[in-house]
Design a protein around this nucleic acid. Structure first.
Length: 423
RNA sequence: GGCAGGUUGUCCGAGCGGCCAAUGGAAACGGACUGUAAAUCCGUCGGCGUAUGCCUACGCAGGUUCGAAUCCUGCACCUGCCA
């Protein structure tokens, strides 16, 4: 059995960090987490080849629980990923088994570095495909379905909101699968706690209730809050996509930049949710942000901490060095060639033939989608070559524009940078 | 299976034979102001070396017409009601 001493301050810390948005029976949860090590699980559906910011909240919360002495079960939804959790935006497109299997592997590999798979409270990786795929329809309907009153299922917010636009039986049934996961882990592994994002609340309580009805058992659940921007709108719309954890899908540099650009009003909240800095450190950073916001001490600490947790210290240093070189305000030409080249590779770099007009270079560097957009950007005064605004749409960079022998630094607006190595 | 309504650009949503590359929101992007914040204001927001031009686009495939996102036919999908 799990023989580790647990940190009695865990729940207070989670609450202080604002990580508990909803909870079943708070008193019982506190008691359970304080008395002894608890086996808990958190699930991730493979809906994309990479996890993102929203999932990171869960991963880090799982790590907090493990650090406090509890035992994690990380579940990847090989089965639930085949079905699709209902969401307001409408029915999902089903992915093929091959796609889901591939994404399951990627997601598992992404979670692994965050948890400790050795020691007295070692983490366990599970896949609900293992117990769902072979389940017969009759068993499913008799053993699981019997415990789900349809009237209750219809009352769930997601379902209600989908009744107009339509919802398939497939997605409607999703909650049964996730609840069954909890039941199985409860029965076979002694898992007594599940948490997830607040949008998962219905699924979380579904499991708790199923355990009660089916086994007469007592299980717990809590939901972490939805992280939003200061104006309440959704995050994740950076550079036209979500904030991915996979460095192939989002460079560590871009990832670091995202946190660095956090709104003042959000820095404290983000530090509490996404970093392991202590309460004292965070309160100090919040005070600094309040007094001298222009120094952005909070943003810097946040960006460094989160990037280090996700991509490692080395990548963080690279990202910082690149940002310092490119945003430093100094003359680019004074930078050493290697420094510049490294910074540009970090920010994103391409190659092009000498004599290519800027308009085409902007397209090739990925800063704009078309030549028309490139011309528009230039005429709006939003395009820069080596930190100088480009005024001539027809401009063709020459030899004396090259920095360190072969580089051009293109920028769109303040933050979108790209290097082009001229061949 | 029957009847009715629907399918428009990243999203929502107008248009209902020429004045439509398509009104209006939102998102996004650029500029100004700043701190690589927020808010605000201004501008842009299908492609093409830029053209009273051509190409692509209003679910898919055909058709009517000098001309169709708009009308007709078939198909697919969605929603509601009936069986």
């Amino acid at each position: 059995m799990d023989r580790v001493s647990v940190d009695p301050g865990l729940l207070d810390d989670l609450e202080w960090r604002g990580l508990i948005a909803h909870s079943t029976d708070p008193e019982a949860l506190r008691e359970a987490l304080t008395e002894q090590p608890v086996r808990f699980y958190v699930g991730f559906d493979p809906t994309a080849p990479s996890l993102h910011m929203g999932n990171l909240v869960q991963i880090l919360t799982a790590k907090r629980l493990q650090l406090a002495g509890h035992t994690p079960y990380a579940l990847v939804g090989g089965a639930t990923g085949m079905i699709g959790d209902p969401r307001d935006s409408g029915e999902r497109t089903l992915n093929s088994l091959d796609t889901v299997k591939e994404w399951v592997q990627k997601v598992q590999r992404q979670i692994e570095p965050f948890l400790d798979f050795e020691g007295p409270n070692a983490a366990t990786m599970v896949n609900n495909y293992d117990w769902t795929a072979s389940l017969s329809t009759i068993d499913f309907l008799r053993d699981i379905g019997k415990h789900f009153p349809v009237n209750r299922m219809l009352a769930r917010d997601v379902v209600k909101s989908r009744l107009e636009a339509g919802i398939s039986y497939t997605e409607f049934s999703y909650v049964l699968l996730q609840s069954m996961d909890f039941l199985n882990l409860y029965r076979d592994h002694g898992v007594r706690l599940q948490f997830g994002g607040s949008d998962q609340w219905g699924n979380l309580t579904g499991g708790v209730e199923l355990i009660r009805r089916h086994e007469g058992g007592k299980a717990h659940a809590f939901a972490t809050p939805l992280v939003t921007k200061a104006d309440g709108t959704k995050y994740g719309k950076t550079e036209g996509g979500a904030l991915w954890l996979d460095p192939e899908m989002m460079s560590p540099y871009a990832f670091h930049q995202f946190w660095l650009n956090a709104e003042d009003d959000k820095v404290g909240e983000l530090l509490r949710i996404f970093t392991f800095l202590s309460r004292e450190e965070i309160e100090d950073l919040e005070a600094q942000t309040a007094e001298k916001p222009f120094l952005r001490a909070g943003q810097k600490a946040l960006a460094d901490a989160v990037t280090t947790v996700v991509h490692g210290a080395e990548e963080t240093e690279h990202a910082k060095a690149a940002a310092a070189a490119l945003f430093g305000g100094g003359d680019l030409r004074e930078l050493r060639g290697e420094t510049l080249a490294a910074a540009l590779r970090e920010a994103g770099a391409t190659q092009a033939a000498r004599g290519t007009p800027v308009v085409d270079l902007l397209v090739e560097a990925g800063l704009v989608k078309s030549k028309g957009e490139a011309r528009r950007t230039i005429s709006e005064g939003g395009a820069y070559l080596n930190n100088e605004r480009i005024t001539d749409v027809e401009h063709v960079p020459g030899e004396d524009d090259l920095i360190a022998g072969s580089w051009l630094v293109l920028r769109r607006g303040k933050k979108n940078l790209a290097g082009v190595e001229m061949r």
